Simulated scan of single mutants.
Amino acid sequence: MKVKKFMNKPITTPPNVLVKDAAEILTSKKIGSLIVTKNDEMLGIITETDLTRRVISKGLDPNKTLLKDVMTKEVIYLDPEETMEEAMHVMNENVIKKLPIVEDGKLVGIITTTDIIKITEKQLRENLDDLKRLNREKDDFIAIASHELKTPIATIKGFLQLLKNKDFIEDQEERENSLEILDKEINRLNNLITNILDFSRIDLNVMKMSFDKVDLYQTMTEIKKLTVPLIKDSGLKANYIFDKNLPEIMADEERLKQVLVNLISNSVKYTQEGKITVKVKKEDDYVHFTVKDTGIGIPEKEQEKIFERFYRVEGAQTKKISGAGIGLAICKELLTFMGGEIWLKSEVGEGSEFHFNIPINGPKNK
């Protein structure tokens, strides 16, 4: 943490001020020293002790003597780019309680031991609050994730029991319906586990991206085949807008698919009627993706938090909708790794549009 951020405006005086006037400033401001400057350039420092000892020992008249005649020449100061730890070390070494901050020979501020102690205490309190918040989020996530994992497992287990029944097996239509449900629940379980594992990799700083040329038209064709059944099974219309002229991009194809599936699944989850539109187009050096729904929408006050981990929009319409609150956060993390950005436009009762872009040539620092 640099000193520059926390320095205070110093109390200064020019060198041609009378000793008497300087003493009055020290007394009125209840401080022990004054910084002497000329045209913002620091010349020295004068203390209450200097004024008393030097003036008396030299038999000088405080009503006639100027500060420049008794000013301390040796000044200890810091550069504003120094850290708080360095400032405290210098203060302790020199048994002083404040340090002038000088940049390019100019006095720009002052830092005191009181400042550092207050800042340190504040930072410790903030760190403690963050740890408490993270601990609550962890507990909430474990509870939600446990529920989310149990639901598809229970469904899979139930249908597997049915498939053991001889009469049930002979009913081809029922058997096919059951296998479709099993397939969906397994995919749901797989997506959740993938997201949870990705969070662990990101936190441990071991997330690996595999960048290669991606044929966007082919990728979007696969995404369409994968997600159209999900959309239509929910009673919604699917609208995909992309063409064969889409450029190849440098990206991690599997992670790109993961982002799109997460966004489309999220839109389906919060849309009761209408349609889901997925659009892809080239814009300058980027490819712009849009996933638009006609769902319940997101209140404006909630929109800034929607990409935070474990955050879920509160409301009567969302309470019955399952989710661990990690899908959108994962999208943001993965897109950051690919050099992209994600944002949304939403209006309650009208639906939401999730937008993201990816640089055609990949991130600058792969």
Results as ranks from 00 to 15, higher is better:
residue 111 I to Q: 05
residue 114 T to A: 11
residue 121 E to Y: 10
residue 122 K to L: 14
residue 122 K to A: 15
residue 124 L to F: 12
residue 124 L to T: 13
residue 127 N to Y: 13
residue 132 K to Q: 10
residue 132 K to W: 04
residue 134 L to G: 12
residue 134 L to Q: 08
residue 135 N to R: 14
residue 137 E to F: 03
residue 139 D to L: 14
residue 143 A to S: 11
residue 144 I to V: 13
residue 145 A to H: 02
residue 145 A to R: 01
residue 146 S to C: 01
residue 150 K to V: 03
residue 150 K to C: 05
residue 154 A to C: 03
residue 155 T to A: 09
residue 159 F to Q: 06
residue 160 L to V: 08
residue 160 L to N: 12
residue 162 L to M: 11
residue 166 K to N: 06
residue 166 K to S: 07
residue 167 D to I: 08
residue 167 D to W: 01
residue 171 D to F: 02
residue 177 N to Q: 11
residue 178 S to Q: 02
residue 178 S to F: 03
residue 178 S to E: 00
residue 179 L to R: 02
residue 180 E to T: 08
residue 183 D to N: 12
residue 184 K to Q: 13
residue 185 E to A: 05
residue 186 I to V: 14
residue 189 L to C: 07
residue 190 N to K: 13
residue 190 N to V: 05
residue 192 L to P: 01
residue 192 L to V: 05
residue 195 N to A: 03
residue 196 I to N: 03
residue 196 I to R: 02
residue 198 D to A: 11
residue 201 R to A: 15
residue 202 I to N: 09
residue 204 L to Q: 13
residue 205 N to D: 14
residue 206 V to T: 13
residue 216 L to R: 07
residue 217 Y to M: 07
residue 217 Y to K: 12
residue 217 Y to R: 09
residue 218 Q to V: 12
residue 224 K to H: 08
residue 224 K to N: 03
residue 225 K to S: 15
residue 226 L to T: 13
residue 227 T to W: 00
residue 228 V to Y: 02
residue 228 V to H: 01
residue 229 P to D: 03
residue 229 P to T: 04
residue 233 D to H: 06
residue 233 D to K: 13
residue 233 D to C: 00
residue 235 G to R: 10
residue 238 A to C: 06
residue 239 N to I: 12
residue 240 Y to A: 07
residue 240 Y to F: 15
residue 240 Y to M: 12
residue 241 I to H: 09
residue 242 F to K: 02
residue 242 F to G: 08
residue 243 D to S: 12
residue 246 L to I: 06
residue 247 P to H: 04
residue 249 I to T: 01
residue 251 A to P: 07
